[in-house]
């Protein structure tokens, strides 16, 4: 199964956006399909604010997530790439790849996480994601084209 398809990928310039804006926008396709609720997005933002920038899991990458909520219908992932860097919490944590992860329980997201980990640890794929100029180019990294 392809980890991320076009309908869950967005790209924007990112100018004047806050990290809260980036997280909210990254979750939009999942909200629109009612796979997740607004409560979950708010939880993610609250966790970031309270616990700091630890979701900046690698250079230029944020993995936005929070504890499972029953309102999450299924394990899911979305991606927002910004042309400009947006700081998560402070200027030590610039990011351009904003992944948004949700899961209804402690195990449903294992496959997603495994596939995502395999892509992010592969430096050539990561560079392709950062260099991509369109949603199509981003989607191609996940479909292996």
């Amino acid at each position: 199964m392809v980890l991320l398809t076009k309908e869950y990928i967005q790209q924007t310039k990112g100018k004047d956006m806050s990290w809260q804006d980036a997280i909210t926008l990254s979750a939009k396709p999942l909200l629109a399909k009612k796979i997740i609720s607004n409560d979950y997005v708010n939880n993610v933002i609250t966790v970031c604010r309270e616990k700091g920038p630890y979701m900046n899991i690698g250079s230029q990458i944020v993995l936005a997530h929070a504890r499972p909520l029953p309102s999450t219908k299924q394990a899911c992932l979305a991606l927002l790439q910004t042309t400009e860097e947006i700081f998560l919490i402070n200027d030590k944590h610039p990011a351009r790849l904003w992944f948004f992860l949700a899961t209804p329980d402690a195990t449903s997201h294992v496959d997603i996480l495994q596939q995502l980990t395999a892509i992010l640890i592969d430096d050539s794929k990561l560079q392709q994601l950062l260099a991509a100029k369109s949603v199509d180019a981003l989607a191609n990294v996940f479909s292996g084209k």
Binding site: M55, L63, H65, A66, T103, V110, L113
Partner: peptide
């Protein structure tokens, strides 16, 4: 990690 489900699993 904070939630014990995402980044720690990674």
């Amino acid at each position: 990690c904070q939630s014990g489900l995402g980044s720690s699993f990674m």
